[in-house]
Design a protein around this nucleic acid. Structure first.
Lengths: 161, 161
DNA sequence: CTATATTCGGATGACTTAATCCTTTTAATG
DNA sequence: CATTAAAAGGATTAAGTCATCCGAATATAG
């Protein structure tokens, strides 16, 4: 099975970049109640700093994270990891229809689309959604015993001479 | 479940635009052996003409379509609709890993990624792939008795006055 | 109350994907 | 053989997503 390029790079995930970043952070965020700096989170996971900051803001507005300004501020989980589902995170980042309403891109809502792939796609979509709804951050953490990100308060970017 | 915007519009499908356009055309292309003009295909489905032309070229190079130049030329299916699978089309347009190798975007191939969602995602991914591999263009046509695109040779864009 | 450290929010820039335009090549027809 | 009609292919533009920058707001500490 050959494939021909049209101009876009191979997609790394069915989710958009902000969603992937969000999940990467949430899965490794410790649940000990301490606030973590956006800057340090980004550094530890090697993600673009200012961009991740914006994503953390969104997660705060959606009630998934809790933010605190000023010195000793930062971000932490707003609820226990077992109370935050994968689905909730994805919906927060991608919107209410994370997989689009139609595989072929037809619009017109649930009813308006007469596309032939629709019935089969709905089945698969429901399986995806169900999986995401029953999987929590805690599940993800435990399943592979993820190491939480480091505890160091801050490294002042060690400017040499 | 609230969701916050970050700058991108709600995705209409998990596939890229060219893939959706390709499927839309293929599903409605008649299998009577006649060549159809890129221009007319685009007009009938209300898709951007020159862009669709490029996509048709790719499908030709992959052996899904057959093209013929000059007058009375155009595009037609290279094989019977029951011999062209959904998977083949998607792979042709999206590359060998249509869903990305990892939900969180980790790279490192099948083994290098220790992401906690991996096992469950692999299961779902296999279901998606299996569905696409066993679904042919013919299945899609029959399931909803799609009307093939019109037979008119060409309309010269009827410039009034 | 001042200084400092952080999130917040808007404006801007860079890069990727979508789409167009124009020239060349190929084939059919008179 | 000239004309015409179509796909093929490259260069260019437009739109969308990703990412950065900077000023404002807010909270802590001295």
């Amino acid at each position: 099975m050959q494939h021909s390029e049209l101009g876009f790079a191979p997609s790394r995930s069915i989710f958009h970049t902000p969603t992937r970043y969000a999940l990467q952070v949430l899965v490794r965020l410790p649940s000990d109640g301490t606030y973590r700096l956006a800057r340090c989170l980004a550094a530890d996971l090697e993600l673009p700093g200012p961009y991740l900051a914006k994503i953390l803001q969104i997660l705060s507005q959606c009630g998934i994270l809790e933010s605190h300004r000023g010195p000793a501020g930062g971000f932490r989980l707003h609820r226990a990891p077992e109370d935050i589902t994968l689905k909730e995170v994805v919906v927060a980042m991608e919107g209410p229809e994370p997989f689009g309403d139609c595989l072929l891109g037809h619009h017109g809502g649930k009813d308006g689309c007469h596309c032939p792939i629709r019935p089969a796609w709905d089945v698969l979509q429901n399986q995806l959604t169900a999986f995401m709804a029953e999987t929590t951050l805690q599940d993800l953490k435990v399943s592979h015993d993820l190491s939480s990100i480091s505890d160091e308060p801050d490294r002042p970017d060690a400017v040499p001479v």
